[in-house]
Design a protein around this nucleic acid. Structure first.
Lengths: 112, 112
DNA sequence: CGGTTGCTTCGACATACATCTATCTTGACA
DNA sequence: TGTCAAGATAGATGTATGTCGAAGCAACCG
């Protein structure tokens, strides 16, 4: 997991630097898969904020290793965190990161 | 360019359906490249809202065909539109699509 | 009409990625 | 300690993707 970028200025305000674009692209790449989006949504929309992996594997017709792979991609991108408690592993979303991405995509305000 | 999805509910509100996830993933895939993010940012941040392709090719150390390819990806994703006027082609961003993506990523409000 | 310039399309190639099966690690429990 | 279950890792494989050079189209200009 790379360090968290600080940029919050919307895409539409100023042209992105190459470094900013690289960091953002890594985050969007993690989101660029239907399974990962559904995983993220399942975790984010859960009351209590966390979900056991066993609940996630049940929600897809995919092998365990494939789910594990997608969770790793989300984790290494910094979008989620995982914690082992006893036998099970629980994941939760990093709301700050999600919020930063949302802010970056806000379109330019149209001047009246 | 596929049809525009109507979904606006944040990822963190309800779990995404497979169809929603597929449409969103296609959009995020278009954003999952540093060059395309910089292109989009260059177009979106331009006063007047549109940019000539010649100005975009000058901003990168990449071949013309490569820039053209990335613009096509953004165009087919529905994130930008291109219009030819005389010799030059001008691109502008579709702010609605950008705004919809931003809304989807808004994190869940934390109950007090 | 021929030439030049702006941009796109085509074909090729190297790399990255999603998925699987098989194997490993970690913890619980007898 | 041995065994079982939950996840993660490793390796293999087919497909997708970023990049380029060459060629094609479209519009302007002698």
């Amino acid at each position: 997991m790379s360090k968290q970028p600080e940029d919050c200025a919307p895409l539409a305000r100023d042209p992105l630097s190459a470094a900013q674009a690289g960091e953002l692209a890594a985050l969007f790449k993690a989101l660029a898969d239907p399974v990962r989006l559904r995983l993220l949504s399942l975790i984010a929309s859960q009351a209590g904020g966390e979900v056991c992996v066993c609940h996630l594997t049940d929600a897809f017709e995919l092998s365990g290793p494939t789910i594990s792979h997608h969770l790793k991609v989300l984790r290494e991108a910094g979008l989620i965190t995982g914690e082992r408690r006893g036998t099970w592993v629980y994941y939760r979303v990093r709301a700050e990161v999600l919020g930063r991405l949302s802010a970056v995509l806000v379109p330019a305000e149209v001047p009246a």
